[in-house]
Design a binder for these strands. Sequence first.
DNA 1: CTTGAAATAACATAGGT
DNA 2: ACCTATGTTATTTCAAG
Lengths: 150, 150
Amino acid sequence: MDEINRKIVNLLQQDSSITNQQLAEAIGLSPASSLERVRKLERSGVIRGYTALMDRRKLGKHIKAYIFITMRQHNAQLMNRFNQAVADLPEVMECDRLAGEKDYLMKVVCDNIEDFEAFTRERLTTIPGIDRTSSTIVLSTLVERSGVEY
Amino acid sequence: MDEINRKIVNLLQQDSSITNQQLAEAIGLSPASSLERVRKLERSGVIRGYTALMDRRKLGKHIKAYIFITMRQHNAQLMNRFNQAVADLPEVMECDRLAGEKDYLMKVVCDNIEDFEAFTRERLTTIPGIDRTSSTIVLSTLVERSGVEY
DNA sequence: CTTGAAATAACATAGGT
DNA sequence: ACCTATGTTATTTCAAG
């Protein structure tokens, strides 16, 4: 991972639709070498994939919220079941296990507040092992970056 | 936004590196029509852009954390300054204004715990108007989705 | 890593249903 | 809106240095 790969990573995070020729010019290498480096980054798993970023509001997803989750117990079986159940909820964009009092934090996106309420009541809090949840609605987003600076 | 556009949105979120021919086949249209729909989604802002997803650990970013922020006062000037300051912090991946007791929640990524400590002490809590912050380190990630289901 | 060449494939556009 | 057809451009692979 030298300076040229850093540039590749940053440029492809900014805009992965650039042509290999543009990328090659930007990093100061030939198109052949540029492509070889990109392929190597893909094969090594540094680049996990390519995605199109959508405007969630234009897709009708007007509610973004964070939900803290505390488990009743912390045994492996309940945690595994929870893990599985959360992976099957399409509203969950992100779910992290935390170091601290609360066990998990998840970021959720829904069409509207009614759907959000139905989601938490019918599909989230029905997962076995959950003690309590605490939801916070997002009012506005100041920063939303697609990639890390490298 | 018909059923075909839904498919396009979902497919491009899954993998934006597919060729237009593959996309056309998957949605059941000719390559020309497929491309025209994609361009229209781009122009209308439904598709905000294209990005490469990176493995943050392989880029040396080992710490992910959430930080709650409470402001001393809630006047417009302080909020604007905060907004500007946060946008200039590359460690901040996401920052949302919340409805509730805490004012903001930000997701941060750093190389290691020392950098995280330095970040909070030297560059975050020095922003004017912040009353207090509360950090939670992420232990592991259960779900991390790049796009919404549509 | 570079250049250059050749094969393949994608893109953009035009004209027609 | 969609399709087919066409010229242009980009990508990919390979060889040689």
